[in-house]
Design a protein around this nucleic acid. Structure first.
Length: 823
RNA sequence: GCGAGAGUGGUGGAAUGGCAGACACGCUAGAUUCAGGAUCUAGUGGGCAGUACGCUCGUGGGGGUUCAAAUCCCCCCUCUCGCACCA
């Protein structure tokens, strides 16, 4: 009797699968299913989060193949990024060398896990064959007017020495290193994602296969709000100040106007006035505040009078213009109208600076006076003090005032989004160069497509100061202008790595194409991804960018997909002792060690068994041992009967009761496992059903010893092995062979359960009195309500307890229960 | 503050209106063994009982709907995540 020895069988089957190209996908054949796990950054080591991610994807991929789908299950590397560059500076290795050796190490780990990837489709975003098409994508956006350069106050991470997109600032810190982000005035490249704001919002409705919270987060991030833009004329001047408001019904309550510190009119309005010095000091002070303090709700609202006034278009009233620290230049128009009676922020501000309040909205049936207010009345109501709109409801007035403004050319209805354009240039080396030239004659010129890729030079020297080595690389810098043939200079910024990952799922469909990023036929054959699996941390970033890029490709006719990912599974984290695994806490569990000790099958099984995929999972060494024990238990079961079963079919004995029970147990498990994987993704309960079937087989074995029914035992073991194969692929393969079959178990059809095996002659029902269980009865299956009721009332225990009471009602549920209601 | 999710034995978790705690970990006992480990078998929510396999309590707290609630509804508490002066 051989022992279960994963360290022998796992490498053996991995090699077999590779040699026999079991995991390669053809573009033709069967109904397609695209399973994708988010590709990793090649840090050099897999962590348990990766292991979980790939285990989930692999069970699905293997299961669906057995269900007859043509499954695409590729893997690649999000290989550009700062850590490579930091490692280069610190250890004096080239980022490319560092990255590729990390890729090798991680690939080895993935192979050791037995994940069924089609390695022929492997991609790395730092490969010129890949980033050529990332650059092509940039040019596509450029041609379509979606890539532009502008001067703006942008987020700067001093630690990473580069700028960041809005999405990449978390809590005022850099998403990668956490350093406090400051604002810098720089000229930078942007993608016009705001042009797609409405579609990105609207199409969330198509994503019924996504977790609702991810859609909600995207919805909040896009932040649509509908209102009007009103133009206030500056008194004694020609300038106009546009103001965005969602409450045009409060327009008659405006008593002042506030500009953001960065508002272009601030300087103009105060130049040469006696307010100039005070305003300038205030602006300086406000600009110095970092983003966190600036947008914190706890911040004290402060402001200063500019000395200027403007005119409320609807009533011609003069209102003072102030500069305030609570108005953001980045949202709306950078100017707000102050309605202290009906906006809490304005109320606080007005109290502090003694600005007047005017009530223009009253709650229905109530009087409201300015003096009586202790806080703003922010709800809808009826208009007062509002000329011809007095008496209207807020709802009606919003529309009527908007129309009135439009008719007089004082403003118009407008929709504003919180979403900002995507800042995509990075002042770093290890990324795809932006394919742009600056010509003295022609200005900004895109690199012609046939000249792609713009190769990232390898002979660079890194400087401690963090300046990109491209900026001082003469050979890279100098270029010939494709338009005039004159001297030109290359853009030295590289692209945000989120661009690399925003289209990689298309490249897998046609990874070796030298003419195009992918052909439409191949892209359309696979995209959208049917099931995408990854961490929740990309709820906005990667997932929003990918949706945007897919829509651009759709508009340009390169894909028929409107959305890239049909279903999304946001997996939970892998923790240890209730806390995130981290070096500083010293609670990191290394996948390598566990695989070495127990084998990949055990790790996969444990991680899928310990919790449903979307929940956080606490790592337990004991639990892992339990999974190992289970696999050994299966091994012994098959080992004991494999020989016996070679004789199966010789004598087909009549099946007795316990034989039939064995068969029922296996088919019941099969039904449950199939449903749990296919419909609910509940791998934990699928595995527990397999365990139950194994337990049933042990009981059967004890009862029958060597007199098991060969046909039934054979079928039971085969079904068990087939069910286990997606979870523990190596053991599945080994046992399949030991049962006398040819490999590969992974090319077998998923078994179908036999309805007749599930049928039972008798079923245990529960008899309740007033909802409390009082008896259990074995009754023939399929009894009618009436028959069931009769049997229940005839039961000794029930009859006894009911005899001196009045039966009010009897509820009978066939094959389940009877509830007798008594008084 | 707003939004979303969660709260079930000693532990991970199961049950989505019909016997709460499947499955597993841990623990207890027995078998096997020189011993340990491994393995197999049985037991394992609390209380009361005491061999009647019975009563009773029990799914964060309180209330409600229902013949029947972990599950549906209302209020409250706690935790996690996301957003947060967005005009």
């Amino acid at each position: 009797m051989a022992e279960y020895n994963p360290s022998v069988i796992e490498p053996k089957w991995q090699q077999y699968w590779e040699e026999h190209k079991i995991d390669q996908t053809d573009d033709e054949g069967g109904k397609k299913y695209y399973v994708l796990e988010m590709f990793p950054y090649p840090s050099g080591r897999l962590h348990m989060g990766h292991v979980r991610n790939y285990a989930i994807g692999d069970v699905l991929a293997r299961f669906l193949r057995m269900r007859g789908y043509n499954v695409l299950h590729p893997m690649g590397w999000d290989a550009f990024g700062l850590p490579a560059e930091n490692a280069a500076i610190k250890n004096n290795v080239h980022p490319a060398a560092w990255t590729y050796s990390n890729i090798e190490a991680m690939k080895k780990q993935q192979k050791a896990m037995g994940i069924s990837y089609d390695w022929q489709r492997e991609i790395a975003t730092c490969d010129p064959d890949y980033y050529k098409w990332t650059q092509w994508l940039f040019l596509l956006l450029y041609k379509r007017g979606l890539a532009y350069k502008k001067h703006a106050a942008v987020n700067w991470c001093p630690n990473c020495s580069t700028v960041l997109a809005n999405e990449q600032v978390e809590d005022g810190g850099c998403w990668r290193c956490g350093a406090e982000v400051t604002l810098k005035d720089l000229e930078q490249w942007f993608f016009r994602i705001t042009d797609y704001a409405e579609r990105l919002l609207e199409d969330l409705k198509l994503l019924s296969g996504w977790p609702e919270r991810v859609c909600t987060m995207q919805e909040n991030w896009i932040g649509k709000s509908e209102g009007v833009e009103v133009r206030f004329k500056v008194k004694d001047g020609t300038d106009e100040i546009p103001v965005f408001t969602t409450r045009p019904d409060t327009l008659y309550g405006v008593t002042y106007l506030v500009l953001a510190a960065e508002h272009p009119l601030v300087e103009k309005l105060t130049a040469g006035t006696e307010q100039e010095a005070a305003v300038r000091a205030f602006v300086e002070k406000t600009k110095k505040l970092n983003e966190v303090d600036r947008t914190s709700t706890e911040m004290v609202k402060e402001g200063v009078f500019t000395g200027a006034y403007c005119l409320n278009p609807v009533n011609g009233e003069e209102v003072p213009i102030l500069v305030g620290n609570y108005v953001l230049m980045g949202y709306g128009t950078g100017a707000v109208m102050g309605v202290p009676a009906h906006d809490q922020r304005d109320f606080e501000f007005a109290q502090k600076y003694n600005l007047p309040l005017r009530v223009v909205i009253t709650p229905p049936g109530q009087e409201l006076t300015a003096d009586a207010l202790t806080e703003a009345y922010v709800d809808d109501g009826l208009l007062i003090n509002s000329a011809q709109f007095t008496g209207e409801t807020s709802e009606a007035a919003k529309k009527k005032i908007a129309a009135y403004l439009a008719a007089n050319n004082w403003g118009e209805a407008k929709v504003t989004y919180r979403l900002r354009d995507w800042l995509i240039s990075r002042q770093r080396y290890w990324g795809a160069p932006i394919p742009i030239l600056y010509c003295e004659q022609c200005g900004t010129v895109p690199v012609p497509e046939e000249q792609l890729p713009v190769i990232l030079p390898e002979d660079v020297t890194f400087q401690a100061g963090g300046q990109s080595p491209l900026a001082v690389h003469e050979e890279f810098l100098s270029a010939v202008c494709p338009q005039c043939g004159g001297q030109a200079r290359r853009e030295t910024d590289t692209m945000d790595t989120f661009i690399d990952s925003s289209w990689y799922y298309f490249r897998y469909t046609d990874p070796h194409n030298a003419e195009l990023p992918f052909t439409k036929a191949k892209g359309d054959a696979w995209v959208p991804v049917d099931q995408y699996i990854g961490g929740i941390e990309h709820a906005i970033l990667h997932l929003l960018y990918s949706r945007f890029i897919t829509k651009v490709l759709y508009d340009a006719g390169y894909t028929a997909a409107v959305e890239p990912f049909t279903r999304l599974l946001a997996q939970g984290m892998v923790n240890k002792d209730g806390a995130k695994m981290s070096k500083s806490k010293g609670n990191v569990v290394s996948p390598d060690e566990i695989i070495e000790k127990f084998g990949a099958d055990t790790v996969r099984l444990f991680i899928l068994f310990a919790a449903p995929p979307e929940k956080d999972l606490d790592w337990s060494d004991r639990g892992v041992e339990g999974s190992y024990r289970f696999l050994k238990r299966v091994w012994r079961l098959v080992d004991r009967y494999a020989a016996v079963l070679q004789r199966a079919g010789e004598q087909q004995a009549e099946a007795d009761k316990s034989d039939q029970e064995m068969r029922r147990a296996v088919h019941t498990a099969l039904k449950k496992v199939t449903e749990d994987i296919e419909e609910r993704f509940n791998f934990n309960t699928a595995i527990s059903s397999i365990m139950e079937a194994v337990n049933a087989a042990y009981s059967y074995m004890h009862e029958k010893e060597d007199n098991v029914h060969p046909g039934i035992m054979k079928e039971a073991l085969e079904i068990l092995v087939l069910m286990l194969a997606p979870f523990a692929p190596h053991l599945g393969e080994e046992l399949w062979q030991r049962l006398g079959h040819q490999p590969s178990v992974h090319l077998q059809s998923w078994p179908t359960f036999d309805h007749t095996a599930l049928q039972v002659a008798e079923v245990e029902i529960v008899v309740q009195i007033n909802g409390k269980v009082r008896d259990h009865l074995m009754v023939p299956t399929g009894l009618t309500r009436e028959a069931l009721q009769e049997l229940a009332l005839a039961s000794e225990k029930i009859a006894q307890q009911v005899q001196d009471k009045q039966i009010v009602k009897v509820i009978a549920v066939p094959d389940k229960l009877v509830n007798v209601v008594v008084r």
